[in-house]
């Protein structure tokens, strides 16, 4: 400001400058609050608040209108009646065999897929950690690369492989191992393949991060004290990689349980998974309250694993 004043700036102008200056100083002293506030309120509005609305609508009654649910204001009238209406959608879900079965099936499929991802991902992560630095970087890049390419298209790629007249069946027939095509697409098998294929990088990366941090001297110390490689693995490596196993498993299990694209494209109508049911309930049947109720129940099912994940995530950043 010094040179400006010398240039003959009016008193008024100086005052404006000092206001602005004061304002900037204030802003600077508050910058921490601002840094937190922007993302915080964004998430509050667009991430957390919507759940409240879902909850509200799941408690409403379905009507044929746009939007197709009863407005909230009606709740205030007649306490007893309201309560009956309130849980109608949830009671409907619990009583209908179809939904219960679908939830259980979703959990089964994503649970088994998680296990398969672990079986494939653990040795791969271990192999990457053990590789020489140059190879390690290439392998890591190869694991990360699928992240960047379209998920939908990668699932689509399996349609071509698994179809009745797809690559695998053609190959097997050509080899003379089978006469008739095997049914693979639109089956649970295809869904397992699709989930493992799409989610195995999510298993490998946390495991890799975990294993990379382990001091190799620990393995050597175990060997030095008489543990053969298998015992070393069981007593040292495995217990110390449990955080990675948990983080990776949850990163696979939770989104897989609500997966829509994979069961829809690879499972067709033959595999019941809750994500697909919810999507159809919403987009085809236009039963929004039931769809909301389905979402709330799915959220309740997944809330525990999510909290476990959250716990590990926060512990990791504190280290």
């Amino acid at each position: 400001m010094g040179p400006l004043q010398r240039g003959g700036v009016t008193k008024m102008n100086t005052r404006v400058f000092s206001y602005i200056n004061a304002w900037i100083t204030k802003l600077q002293s508050r910058w921490q609050t601002i840094v937190i506030a922007i993302p915080f309120y964004w998430l509050l509005l667009f991430f957390l608040a919507p759940f409240a609305i879902v909850l509200k609508i799941s408690l409403a009654e379905s009507i044929i209108a746009i939007p197709p649910f009863t407005p909230l204001i009606n709740f205030a009238e007649g306490g007893v009646l309201t309560i009956r209406i309130l849980f109608d959608n949830f009671i409907f879900l619990m009583e209908d065999d179809f939904y219960v079965k679908t939830y259980l099936n979703s959990i089964k499929i994503s649970g088994i897929s998680t296990l398969l991802c672990l079986l494939l991902g653990y040795p791969m992560a271990y192999g990457i950690v053990r590789a020489s630095p140059a190879t390690k970087n290439i392998l890591l890049m190869m694991v990360i690369l699928p992240f960047w390419t379209s998920f939908l298209l990668r699932v689509y790629a399996w349609m071509g492989l698994l179809a009745d007249r797809g690559t695998i069946n053609n190959l097997l027939i050509w080899l003379g191992m089978i006469d008739e095509p095997i049914r693979m697409l639109y089956s649970e098998f295809a869904v397992y393949i699709g989930i493992v294929y799409s989610y195995v990088p999510f298993m490998i990366l946390p495991l890799y991060a975990n294993m990379e941090k382990l001091d190799t001297a620990l393995h050597e110390a175990a060997a030095d004290l008489g543990a053969n490689p298998i015992t070393t693995f069981l007593t040292v490596t495995l217990p110390l990689t449990i955080p990675g196993i948990i983080a990776g498993s949850l990163l696979v299990f939770i989104p897989a349980a609500g997966e829509f694209v994979i069961p829809d494209l690879l499972g067709g109508g033959n595999v019941l998974m809750i994500g697909r049911v919810l999507y159809n309930e919403f987009n085809s049947n236009h039963d929004w309250p039931v769809a909301s109720a389905v979402a709330i129940v799915l959220l309740l099912v997944l809330v525990l694993p999510m909290m476990v994940y959250q716990y590990y995530q926060s512990r990791k950043t504190e280290d």
Binding site: D215, A217, E220, A221, A222, A223, T232, V236, L240
Partner: peptide, 17 residues
């Protein structure tokens, strides 16, 4: 192999589990 040698080592980093 190391786990069969009649030798034990104290590591520079201690390497405690």
């Amino acid at each position: 192999p190391p786990y069969e040698r009649p030798i034990n080592m104290m590591f520079q980093s201690y390497a405690l589990f």
